[in-house]
Each structure stands twice: as structure tokens, then as C-alpha cells.
Amino acid sequence: MSEPVLSVSNLRTVFHTDRETIRAVDGVSFDVGRGETVGIVGESGSGKSVTARSIMGLVESPGEILPGSSIRFNGQELTEFDDAQYREIRGSGIGMVFQDPQKSLNPVYTVGNQIIEALEENQDLTGEEAREEAIDLLEAVAIPDAPRRLDEYPHEFSGGMRQRAMIAMMLACDPEFLICDEPTTALDVTIEAQILELLQELQEERGLSILFITHDMGVIAEIADRVNVMYAGEIVETAPVEELFASPTHPYTEGLLDAIPGRQDGSEQLRTIEGDVPTANEAASHCRFAPRCEHAFDACEQAHPQHVEVGPEHTAACLLYPGEKSRSERVEHHRAQAETGGDHE
């Protein structure tokens, strides 16, 4: 693979509250290659949205990206950027499509106004030229009757149309990298499929790289080339999409896949993972999934699992691996790994 567009390593984003410091993202590393779609999947509260906001530089007080974190975009270190430099990157470099198109569009301006605004800022288009381009963009995201729609307000759009408009608005920035933060969660299934298809088309046409964030394994299967599974602020498994679905290794990933209707063999009931994602407020010295894990054993409470290679381009952080070793050897292996530097603090 050539030089990745985006390379995140050891990203740690915390939120300071009166009582404690919440480690929303705790040592996350992954790459996104050019033209590739990388998925981050996890339940709500797993830190996937905070990861996206950290990349966009939208983390504000009381949130903080801890020193030692690195976000490299086209070789530039974003964590060292000041506001003005970040503004250059946002829009024309990295765009972001948010979860709730209803709230993400400003209700008091027309859709056209908001698209043209992006064109002015990022492509120096103005007046009639900008309007023409905005119409083209609306047509590109398959909104019928674009010239008329341009002068309508967000509340006059349906949910799916709003998300299309939102995507058009981000395309107006002409980014090379697009973050989609649960862009289809608020939409119903048929619309969801259309939007996913649209994103794939646009990616091919424009050579976009996409970071796609969702809680839905089904959506990930549709769109992603590679998948990172996130749990309680950490990535617990990384693999190419086919590999992950064919041979999930981490118990959490297995749980997520079992929760997809129609994937279980035979008579087995649809299974769900009991319990909620814990809020991480201390450095991990154990497996954060242990309380909910079916395979948990004593050591899971005492050693922090490290990523272990379990297949081609496939790693998982669980004390059950590497599978060929004995249990005590495995635990030792993870401990040693943690000490030599994979882990921090």
C-alpha cells in the first residue's frame, strides 16, 4: 500500500469533568489509504465519534487530545496545528458528514446558501458560477429538481434528501478525505441503501478516501474495505472486511456479528451482548470487555490485552490469542508486549 492519507497513532482524547477524567479515546491507531474506505464499528459510547471529532480538530474544552497522540494527514501532523491552520485543512482537506442531517443544517438559511458558502470558502467560486456548481452538486447527489430545491430551507427536505444535501455540501468543499459519522443512522433502510450506494459512486468518481463510522455491522459489510472494531475507547480488532466476517477472532466482534439477523447457524436465537459499554476513567490494566465476555478468565482482569496477529492483515487484542500458545504463555506474552511499549503509562 502506498503512503496512507491519514495515519492515526496512539490517539488519546480525554474529557475533564468535575469528578473524573473520562478517557473517551484511549490509544487508538489506524491508517486510511488513498481511495480506501475504512470502517470504525462499535456501540454508542465506544469512542468512535470522538475519534472522528479529534481528527477534525473539533474537540473543545473540557475535552483534550493528550500529548503523545499523533494524527498525520498527508504527512502533516494535525495535532500541532493551530486554529488557522486547521481551518485550511477542514473542508478542502477533510470533510465530515454528521449523523443527524436535521440538526446539522442551519435551519434559517436555504440549502443553496449553505452549499454556496462552502464553495466560496473552499473553491473561490462566487455568484452565478457558484450557483451553477451548487446545482451540479445537488444533481450529483441525485436530488431531483435541483434548481428549485436550491432555494428551499432544510425543513422542506425529507430526511434522506437532507443527508444528500449535507453530502453535497461537503463535496462542495472538494475534500480528498471524508469522514462519515453514522450518516445513515437517522434514515430508514431503503434510504440508507441509496445513500451508501451514492457514497460508493462518489468515491469512485472523485477518488475519495473515506472513514466510515457506524454501529451497524451490516452497513460496514456494504461499504468498508477494512474494519476497526472499537470498544471502550480502544480498537480491539482490525481486519479486511471479508476476513473479519469470515473469521472473527475477538469475542466482542463475535458478539457483534451474532447480533446481525440471519447470520446464526440453524435454530439458534438472535443473540445480543448483555450490558453496556463501561466508561473508561483510568488507564487500562485489564481487558475492558471482561465483564461482558463469555470467554473471560482470571487473567482478563489483570493483564491488558495487546494486538496480536491472527491472520493476514488481521490483529486482535484478546488474551485468547495467539491461540497456539498455552494460557499462561499467552498472558505472559501480552504482559511483556505491554511493557516493551505497545502500551502507555
Partner: peptide, 29 residues
């Protein structure tokens, strides 16, 4: 603190423009 201001930031708008255009008019309501 609204989502549309976050969107405006994601578009790369300057904070001046965000405050004058996006915050100002909504605050008038």
C-alpha cells in the same frame, strides 16, 4: 453548541463568519 455550527466548522469557515452568519441569526429568534 449546535450541530450546524459544527458543520460550519467542518466546512472550514472562519470563526468570524460562523458567529456573524450562523450564530447571529439563530440567536435573534
Amino acid at each position: 453548541n449546535s450541530k450546524y455550527v459544527e458543520t460550519a466548522k467542518a466546512k472550514g469557515l472562519s470563526s468570524r463568519r460562523i458567529i456573524v452568519k450562523h450564530v447571529g441569526r439563530n440567536a435573534v429568534v
